[in-house]
Design a protein around this nucleic acid. Structure first.
Length: 732
DNA sequence: TCGGTTCAGAGTATT
DNA sequence: TCTGAACCGA
């Protein structure tokens, strides 16, 4: 059984999957089977009983990655993945805080502010304290606060030496106090708060440290400083962190990612097991040669070189266009011929550095009648009408949520204008209460309207108390007047649809996800009562904003930024706008290590392509209303000539475009699985000690009698095959 | 409260 | 050039 699990892994993958419980760093190149290693590792640990499903904690950055891990694990193991701690940093922290809300100093019903909610909370704060918003724009304050939190710092811990920053720190403290009063936490707070929870409460800390015998981290290069400390704290003395990442694909420094965490981890945890996954199962040789050559221009790397057992394939094609319009026109022609040759549109991606570049391309595609999908944009739970509905739901759960209150107090319009709101805010401030709590403090017509609104919320709370989640949502939509309001609007049809979709989402949440899922295996951890289905749904809405584009039905070309292409792969990839100033972006050149990050971004872009890669740039481009003349990106010149073919006269002859048949390389066939169980009292997964090699894990048992042999992974010492009769193994 | 006008800014993004 | 936010008048 475990042999089947391990079948088909290459040597490095096998070594990684079966490592002993020690700190390990896996440098997983693009397309090297990273997710497979992660999930197989978990399955291996569980199947060989080195860990129980409850004893594993696996953390990712996106819900998508977490879902994929759960799905693949479910396919590998006949166990329920429910109740396992596999999720995003934020999702897991939320779980921790829900279970220990009291110790974390939060109300049971605490709600999560998304980025937009946080910004409006800050705006409100600035207004209340009459801060000059020219000097302190809400956006900057937000960046400052989140930056501090992501570095693990509270207001009192930020060191400042000028009046400007002193004021920011002051606002930081006021903001935190406001959140505390309102019972809300922002994204960064989820992490910081749960870090502090573990740090300050020894029993809770040791409980989880003992429970999680194995911690696995995906995309380790993207962790920020706080996440690193969080992991370290949770790992305790055991230190069994299995970190998988690729420093060459670190492209999120701008949002706090600290690649240095990889080197820090290696040093601080004295990692003896650095394993490189360099065999690439995705791209043909020329594409990998281009990627390798490009990334070699970066100085600070842990070092890695991708290779493939497939052939060189086709060279990378480069096209020079006269203008951005002509670049798009060429793109259209090229895509048409790819499609004519039988390639599915969904297997072709057009990548660009910044969103604004999509416009010209979309225009050309639209005129040519080529179906396409643009990634990025508003997600389901971010739509105004959905956020309105959620605000009502939040108020039912937690009336002190002023952000939610202000969002819907006069929506749909009910005669509560800015005057009334000001009076209410004054009453709330002087009484030290929430807006909701201060409703009685406003007199006159506005006051009456406010009272009616408060009654509406109270009524909803009572009415929905015992209803199933979907019915709660339905009731709120009807009684709040939201549905009626949008039905009466000329162009409200889509909004009405979205609101109806919200009811479906609620029903699906209960049915599929099962809000009580968390409780299944973790009842012992949950010191307090479970959150209500409504609270769970609201967290879900904040933590998972949903799809960012609809209609995936038809076969459409894929348009996206290079950033959003990370982790994806396509048969054919176009990287467009390869001009100095655009890619690498001019703003990045001023930044510390900015150029290297841009180069990594290019590396990510190149390694998305399986079979065919196009690079293009334009001599002129309309930017901010003005024609800019660009020169081709240095990144093109950093590619090896032998792997590149110019389609326009430049370095080499132009030459006609020829297309070969598509070769689809499948993964190498898995060797036939052998069977083995216990031998001479040893079993697979067992940790043993060898006089010379130290501790290792048995990964295979073969032969019998005097010929009985064991294959053992000794981590840094490598994988050895030993005769059981000769080697003196002790059970560790 | 809405709708039009003016003005600044324009990079990448998940939770 | 285009977009979104802020602002002012009806």
């Amino acid at each position: 059984m475990s042999d089947r699990l391990l079948a088909g892994l290459n040597d490095q993958q096998l070594a990684a999957v079966t490592l002993p419980a020690q700190p390990a760093l896996i440098l997983a190149g693009a397309g090297s089977g990273k997710t497979r290693v992660l999930t197989t590792r978990i399955a291996w640990l569980i199947q060989t009983q080195q860990a129980s499903p409850q004893g594993v904690l696996a953390v990712t950055f996106t819900n998508k990655a977490a879902r994929e891990m759960v799905a693949r694990l479910g396919a590998m193991l006949p166990i329920s993945t429910r109740g396992m701690w596999i999720g995003t940093f934020h999702g897991l922290c939320n779980r921790l805080l829900r279970a220990h809300h009291r110790d974390a100093g939060l109300p049971q019903t605490f709600q999560i502010l998304d980025t937009a909610d946080q910004l409006s909370a800050i705006k409100r704060l600035l207004k209340a304290h009459q801060i000059d918003d020219d000097k302190y724009p809400a956006r900057n304050v937000q960046v400052f606060i989140n930056g501090a939190k992501e570095a693990g710092l509270r207001a009192g811990q930020v060191e400042v030496d000028d009046p400007y920053h002193r004021k920011l720190v002051e606002l930081f403290a006021l903001y935190d106090a406001q959140c505390q009063r309102e019972g809300v936490v922002d994204f960064a707070e989820l992490l910081l708060r749960s870090y502090e929870l573990l740090q300050r409460h020894e029993p809770i800390r040791s409980h989880y440290q003992e429970r999680f015998s194995h911690i696995l981290v995906d995309e380790f290069q993207d962790t920020n400083r706080l996440q690193y400390r969080w992991l370290k704290l949770l790992a305790g003395d055991r230190n069994a962190i299995f970190a998988v990442g690729d420093d060459d694909q670190s492209i999120y420094a701008f949002r706090g990612a600290h690649v240095g965490n990889m080197a820090d981890f290696e040093r601080e945890f004295r990692v003896r097991n650095v394993i490189r996954l360099e065999q690439n199962y995705r791209s043909h040789g020329h594409i990998l040669d281009a990627a390798n050559a490009l990334i070699r221009h970066n100085a600070r790397r842990l070092g890695k070189n991708l290779w493939t057992s497939e052939g060189s394939g086709e060279p990378v094609r480069v096209f020079e266009a006269g203008s951005d319009g002509l670049e798009a026109a060429w793109l259209v022609d090229e895509i048409k011929s790819l499609v004519a040759d039988g390639l599915a549109r969904r297997d072709i991606a057009v990548l660009y550095r910044s969103n604004a570049q999509s416009r010209v391309i979309e225009h050309a595609l639209f005129n040519a009648g080529i179906p396409y999908r643009v990634y990025g944009g508003l997600r389901f739970f971010e739509r105004a009408e959905v956020k309105h509905a959620l605000a009502y739901l939040r108020l039912i759960e937690n009336p002190a949520d002023d952000t939610a209150f202000l969002r819907v107090v006069n929506f749909p319009p009910r005669g509560i204008g800015s005057r009334t709101i000001e009076q209410l805010q004054e009453a709330a401030r002087s009484g030290g209460r929430s807006l909701y709590g201060a409703v009685g403090g406003v007199s006159g017509k506005g006051g009456a309207n406010l009272a009616a609104f408060a009654q509406l919320i109270d009524g909803l709370r009572l009415e929905t108390a015992n209803l199933p989640l979907a019915a709660i949502v339905e009731t709120v939509l009807a009684r709040s007047g939201l549905l009626a309001h949008y039905r009466g609007e000329k162009e409200g049809a889509e909004r009405v649809e979205n609101l109806e979709e919200l009811v479906n989402a609620a029903a699906a949440f209960v049915a599929e996800e099962g809000y009580a899922q968390d409780a299944a295996g973790t009842a012992a951890d949950a010191a307090s009562a479970l959150p209500s289905p409504l609270a769970a749904f609201l967290s879900h809405a904040a933590l998972e904003a949903g799809e960012n584009q609809a209609a995936e039905g038809q076969d459409a070309l894929q348009l996206m930024t290079v950033h959003s292409a990370k982790g994806l792969e396509f048969h054919a990839v176009f990287i467009t706008g390869l001009e100095e100033g655009l890619f690498p972006h001019e703003n990045s050149l001023q930044e510390m290590d900015g150029l290297e990050e841009e180069r990594r971004l290019m590396y990510v872009a190149i390694t998305r392509a399986r079979r065919r890669l196009y690079l293009s740039f334009a001599q002129s481009r309309l930017l901010h209303g003005q024609t800019r003349y660009g020169i081709r990106s240095r990144f093109i010149d950093e590619l090896p000539e032998g792997s590149v073919r110019w389609l326009t006269p430049r370095l080499r002859d132009g030459g006609g475009l020829r297309f070969g048949p598509w070769h689809d390389a499948s993964l190498p066939a898995a060797p036939a699985a052998a069977t083995s169980r216990e031998k001479n009292g040893y079993r697979i997964g067992q940790t043993v000690r060898h006089a010379r090699f130290g501790e290792g894990v048995i990964i295979r048992l073969e032969g019998s009698g005097t010929d009985a042999r064991a294959k053992i992974n000794f981590g840094a010492q490598g994988i050895k095959e030993l005769l059981l009769a000769v080697a003196k193994l002790e059970a560790a």
